[in-house]
Every structure is written in C-alpha cells, then in structure tokens.
Amino acid sequence: MNRSIIGSDACSPESAKSSAQLLVWVFIWTATMVLADKGMAYQWWTEKWITVAAIVVNTALGVGMITFFVSYLRKMDELQRKIQLEALAFAMGCGLVGSFTYSLLVTAGFIVETEIGDIILLMTVTYMAAIIVGRVRYR
C-alpha cells in the first residue's frame, strides 16, 4: 500500500509535498513551452536544431508531467480520486464546450482572434474551482 498521501489530511505535509511537486512539473513544462514558442516567434535563435531541441524537451517534460500526475492520482484514496475525477470531467467538459462555442463565435464574426491559450486557461480555472468545490463539499 502506498502511504505517501493516504492516512493523512488533504493539507498534510505529504499531500502538500506531492502537490508542490506537481506544481513544479506544470511550471517547468509551461516555462519550456513559452520559451520554445516565444523563441521561435521572436527569432531568439536561427538554428533549426535548437527549435527541434526546444520542442523535444518540451514534449518530453510534458510526458513526464503526465506520468507524475497519474502516479499522483494513484497515491490518493478513493474520495480524493473521486474529487479529482469530478474536477477533471468538469474541466474537460468546459474545455470542450468552450472551444466549440469559441469556434462558433469566430465563425459568426463576434471574435477575431483565436488563442488555444484561452481554452487552456478556461480548463485550468474550471479544474481548480472544481477541486475547491469538491473539497468543500466532502469536508
């Protein structure tokens, strides 16, 4: 039995440590994505291999982040997993519906610019809000 989160509070040092590690993964992945994106957009470098390396490093860190998140979920107990599942379902649903609504608004001419970052932001905010609601609901 893995006891790194279970047998403790959601705010226990063990749980906080795992959450902090997840945040570090997310931060590093986001930072390398921004670096790769802005680097290419503003031509911080001209060599093709640096572009390829930036994409490969970002993708590899993304895979690492996903792997860590899966192991993070497996360490949780059934209630914590239920809260995560509900939050992920809510965030994915909002992202899906939001992206199609966004697309319709663009087609209708109400919105000119389309940014994938807006959908990611929507999903992130809804996920975090759903986690808070879940923790309060089962408190």
Binding site: M1, G7, D9, S15, D77, L79, R139
Partner: peptide
C-alpha cells in the same frame, strides 16, 4: 481511524 484504514482524515469525516 484514517491511518488504520489507509485513507485520508477527510475521507473518514465524509
């Protein structure tokens, strides 16, 4: 009880 059951205290409370 949470430690004995291998779950979080929040789960026992819920």
């Amino acid at each position: 009880l949470a430690v004995a059951l291998g779950v979080s205290r929040q789960t026992v409370n819920a």
